[in-house]
């Protein structure tokens, strides 16, 4: 039994109108506890629609979503309890901020879930620390913060609910490199602290190579590929055919191979590449 499993999920937008559109078509995959799953695909490939199914925001037209073996729509009245176990951080989550102070905004989720006063305090402190928002911010208005800070506060608001599965929809969109690294570290740290499952929608193949245990490639609402990053990135032609590419560093090594070098094709991060190049150079010196 998988921790979270999606079976033959299909979703049709605006059914029975001229605007109808299969946003997601017959997608199946599963993810285990403590794993990071990356979902990639070009714009409009159905990624965002897919992830909104996972915590019951959208009801599938066909197919089912099993969380710990239970169909999440079995008990429709209980769907909000699923949302507390499977957290979803939307694209540009800073637009969901509304409270007067940062503290209140982070505490909003836990409060809705009926945490006690003490639990709320504790989880707000924890998640604020995790995202690097210090306590002096707590009494500020969230609207006075910078873009990156707003996003971290918004993420803290979801983390404070202590979900077992957390979904990020393009968490690094529109951030500068430092902001991006911050967010990626937050994801890693939350996963480590809570042994949580992370599902991340992203456009950055570098992030996929660095973080993901599994990759789901979407194309036109259908599952195009599913596997480990190394498996996925070893088939560059297929990735190109769905409008994606391998990480930049893999491309560099492929080009070097064309020039007569002989690097392995499963190198996907800069660190791996550095090692491979050093070894190669060492080999050349010895020769």
């Amino acid at each position: 039994m998988s921790f979270l499993e999606v079976k033959n999920l299909t979703y049709t937008y605006s059914k029975n109108t001229p605007f109808f559109n299969d946003a997601v078509e017959d997608v199946s995959f599963s993810v285990e506890k403590g794993e990071i799953l990356a979902i990639v695909g070009h714009t409009g490939s159905g990624k965002s629609t897919l992830v909104q199914h996972l915590n019951g925001l959208i009801k599938p037209t066909k197919g089912e979503i099993l969380f710990c073996g239970q169909n999440i729509w079995n008990n429709e009245k209980n769907i909000s309890s699923i949302r507390s176990k499977i957290g979803l951080v939307f694209q540009y989550p800073e637009y969901q901020l509304f409270e007067e102070t940062v503290f209140k905004d982070i505490a909003f989720g836990p409060k809705n879930l009926g945490f006690s006063e003490q639990e709320i305090n504790e989880s707000v402190l924890n998640s604020a620390k995790l995202v690097g928002i210090s306590q002096e911010y707590f009494n500020k208005s969230p609207f006075d913060l910078s873009g990156g800070e707003k996003r971290r506060v918004a993420i803290a608001g979801v983390l404070a609910m202590k979900p077992q599965v957390i979904i990020f929809d393009e968490p690094t969109a529109g951030l500068d490199p430092i902001g991006r690294n911050n967010i990626l570290n937050i994801i890693k740290n939350y996963k480590k602290e809570h042994n949580a499952t992370v599902i991340m929608v992203t456009h950055s193949m570098e992030d996929v190579a660095l973080l993901a245990d599994k990759v789901l490639v979407m194309n036109n609402g259908k599952k195009a590929m599913f596997g480990t990053p190394k498996e996925i990135f070893s088939d560059r032609n297929k990735l190109l055919s769905v409008g994606l590419d391998v990480p930049l560093i893999t491309n560099v090594l492929l080009k070097l191979n064309e020039l007569g070098f002989n690097f392995e094709s499963n190198i996907i991060t800069v660190d791996e590449a550095v090692n491979a190049i050093i070894n190669c150079k060492g080999g050349a010196d010895n020769a």
Binding site: R83, L88, F90, P93, Q96, P110
Partner: peptide, 16 residues
């Protein structure tokens, strides 16, 4: 719709 979904994901219950 987006904001509603975001707040639903934060445990707001609009239906009950």
């Amino acid at each position: 719709q987006k904001i509603m979904n975001a707040q639903k994901a934060r445990g707001v219950n609009f239906e009950n």
